[in-house]
Design a protein around this nucleic acid. Structure first.
Length: 739
DNA sequence: AATGCGATGCCTTAT
DNA sequence: GCATCGCATT
């Protein structure tokens, strides 16, 4: 651990007035500078109340506050440290009524958004096949990220039929969001910027309050965040942004790397400080990272260096399939743990996509290695959690039609789709909320005996509203929901393993409610719901429980681990096939930055691995070694006998990786060191699944290849002659078609 | 209205 | 390989 601040760090800490850009390489003590800077400001007599620090995750915010607190022992609670989203939520809770929303608005997550889009498409009679929700969602999201209103979008769409259709959805979607008194994630930013734009008095209030602004991970800010920061900083111009252009990895969600690259143009009087000394990783790991990232063009020039020892070489292994890869990761993990007396929590297994976690999980489970998976299906995204939350949201905001529709027949009350549609129709005509329409169910035409069922439901909601005002705590209210709905009872009655785990999840949610109530100064249902809406998976990462961590490289940004496994290092996975096929240089550079982020998470040991064959959406595919692995100088890598192949030029290695022999691992006797043998007498230009031709037997498909030392034993299923096993050197099989 | 079945289509990455 | 969706059945 670094003892005292180095010169540039010190300079950054003591810079008080005017714009400041801190280019902080990975592991260069960024958080340290931020926390010291806040502490320094307070020591200099500044009011902590005037300081705003924006971080990427709630977890990071908590850490900043904690560290400032431990440095000063006071004052930190008055510093406003939060993420962009929670900053906006808190501002809007106070002032959103100025722009026509109710301050008890609901926050919609991606799932809610999707439902609403679906409803909207139906209403506009647009074909979801022509306009997939996915596409619409990203269009709307990108519009909002660029502060483009529906009418502006429509204006720009003129002449482009497709865009004009999307403009219709965007417009109707926003109307519905407004009617539901709901905001999605993008709206939180959008509405705040809009509020500040339309109400300069409100903006000035916050400008006065936030005289000193710090933004972390600035390279991942998008346009709307840029605008928000610019608004807030305009008056006092005491803006300090910290970031690393090499770690910009969120282009897909609108992050604009130009925000950091052009900071000096936006603020010509900006001071620029570079932090280039890395305190995290060994020299070998750092050099590998430097080598990879140096392949990108158009970056701020900066070279990370370290005083640390070389350390161990990076490990690289190619396996036959993803099961073997997972198996060996588990094996090497245990080996390292025992050899160097490490904790499980010293390890992270990182991958490109969440889908890769399943196989890893399976093998860890088999070997009794405690682990925790972050990301993917979020806890709060689970069905039962969303159901219970929908009850809470309905009580908190009766305009939230989406939540009401979600729970009106959950648990089953015999209220079906047709009834819901009729009521929906009625609500639309009367221009009232869905819940209000439910209250007037007797006036809704065409509702027969379902009316009494609906009335039972509305009574339930009214009772719950009474419960909330009558109950002493939110936990008590929570139990009222469970009791009155019978949700939990129904699950218990099911007696299945799945239902049981849902019950457990509900219990966990209950704990969360209790926890919130203990921590909050003035607990309220609204605040509880917003906290839940904005919580991210890594926020709950807790290094004190001794488990291996599994997550995507994206989620791992900002984290560090003594030992890191980067798996699935294959062209087609990482970089992904989309990126490779598109031929887009910018996209490829972003993938490379992601790789850079992955490598620089490791402090001492880095294991890279890939698999020759892998199941991807149902079918098996073969992937060559990732080009990024090949960008690492071979002297930094220990790859057993495979090093030769790595040294070859990229184009030739691609060829070579197809010819390379199949190797088999006996899990009971895991190999040390030399895993690969490249110098074989015979090489095969075909693999499992390929169609081959034999002089005598004709065509067939290769089903198995066994490494028999000098030769390969190849099993082929011939079209006419059945399955034959033969030695490759005699068979002289000719490849016809790849699988 | 609820259930169950086969067909479809789809995968980055996440607040 | 998985989840979602539409359809037919009870």
């Amino acid at each position: 651990m670094q003892m005292k601040l180095n010169a540039p760090q010190q300079e950054a800490v003591e810079h008080i007035n005017g714009p400041l850009l801190i280019l902080a390489g990975a592991g260069s003590g960024k958080t340290r500078v931020i926390t010291h800077r806040i502490a320094y400001f307070i020591e200099q007599g500044m009011d902590p109340y005037n300081i705003l620090a924006i971080t990427f995750t709630n977890k990071a915010a908590g850490e900043v506050r904690e560290r400032v607190d431990s440095m000063l022992g006071y004052g930190s609670e008055r510093v406003w440290v939060s993420t962009f989203h929670s900053l906006c939520v808190r501002i809007l809770r106070r002032h959103i009524d100025r722009i026509g929303y109710n301050t008890n608005y609901t926050i919609y997550d991606t799932d809610d958004q999707k439902r609403l889009i679906k409803e909207t498409l139906l209403y506009l009679q647009m074909d979801p096949k022509m306009y997939p929700e996915r596409l619409i969602m990203s269009e709307i999201s990108h519009a909002k990220e660029n502060f483009i209103t529906p009418s502006e979008y429509d204006l720009a769409a003129q002449g482009d039929y497709r865009k004009m259709q999307i403009a219709r959805v965007y417009t109707e979607y926003q109307i519905r969001m407004h009617n539901n008194n709901a905001l999605d994630f993008d709206d939180l930013l959008f509405k705040t910027v809009q509020l500040f734009q339309d109400y300069p008095d409100v903006l000035e209030m916050y400008q006065e309050r936030f005289r000193y602004i710090m933004v972390d991970e600035y390279q991942d800010t998008n346009t709307i965040q840029f605008l928000l920061v610019r608004q807030l900083a305009r008056k006092y111009r005491n803006l300090c942004v910290v970031g690393d252009d090499d770690q910009s990895i969120y282009k897909f969600r609108g992050a604009n790397i130009m925000n950091i690259l052009n900071f000096e143009e936006e603020y010509p009087d900006a001071t620029v400080i570079k932090l280039e000394q890395n305190y995290r990783s060994t020299a070998n790991i750092l050099n590998a990272a430097n080598a990879v990232i140096s392949n990108n063009e158009g970056r701020k020039d900066k070279v990370l260096w370290t005083e640390q020892e070389d350390g161990d070489k990076l490990q690289f292994k190619q396996y036959e399939n993803e099961y073997q890869e997972a198996e060996m990761i588990a094996y090497y993990l245990l080996e390292e743990k025992i050899k160097n007396r490490r904790n499980y929590s010293d390890f992270a297994i990182l991958y490109r996509m969440n889908a890769q976690s399943r196989v890893l999980e399976e093998k860890l489970l088999m070997k009794n290695i405690p682990y925790r998976i972050y990301g993917g299906q979020n806890f709060y995204g689970r069905m039962e959690i969303k159901d219970i939350l929908a009850y809470m949201k309905t009580v908190a905001n009766s305009y939230d039609d989406l939540s009401v529709k979600r729970i009106i027949n959950v648990p089953k009350r015999g209220i079906g789709v047709s009834t819901i549609q009729k009521i929906d129709q009625y609500a639309l005509q009367m221009n009232i909320s869905f819940l209000d329409a439910l209250y007037q169910v007797e006036d809704v035409p065409g509702i027969g005996k379902a009316a009494s069922k609906v009335q039972k439901f509305t009574e339930l909601i009214m009772d719950l509203k009474d419960d909330l005002s009558g109950s002493r705590s939110l936990a008590e209210f929570f139990d009222c929901i469970l009791d009155r709905t019978g949700y939990q009872e129904e699950l218990i009655a099911e007696h299945t393993e799945e239902a049981l785990s849902r019950v457990e999840n509900i219990d966990e949610l209950r704990n969360k409610v209790i926890q919130y109530e203990e921590d909050a100064e003035t607990p309220s249902l609204e605040e509880l719901l917003e906290e839940i809406a904005l919580i991210s998976d890594v926020d709950s990462l807790n290094s004190s429980d001794d488990r291996v961590v599994l997550m995507t490289i994206h989620s791992a940004k900002g984290l560090e681990f003594p030992c890191v496994f980067l798996c699935g290092m294959e062209d087609g996975i990482f970089p992904g096939s989309m990126t490779i096929n598109s031929g887009n240089t910018e996209d490829m550079e972003e993938e490379r930055r992601l790789c850079y982020v992955g490598i620089t998470r490791a402090k001492q040991k880095l294991y890279l691995s890939c698999s020759r064959q892998r199941m991807m959406h149902g079918s098996s595919s073969r992937n060559p070694i990732s080009r990024f692995v090949k960008e690492i100088p071979s002297e930094l890598i220990d790859a057993g006998g495979f090093r030769t192949a790595l040294n070859q030029p990229v184009t030739r290695v691609d060829e070579a990786s197809r010819v390379a022999p199949v190797f088999k691992v006996d899990p009971s006797k895991p190999p040390f060191g030399r895993t690969f043998t490249v110098n074989k007498a015979v090489t095969l230009d075909y693999g499992i699944g390929d169609t081959v031709e034999h002089v005598k037997f004709g065509q067939g498909v290769v089903t198995e290849i066994v490494n028999g030392g000098k030769d390969y034993e190849v099993t082929v299923e011939f079209d006419k002659y059945g399955t034959k096993r033969m030695f490759a050197s005699f068979a002289k099989l000719k490849k016809l078609e790849e699988s």
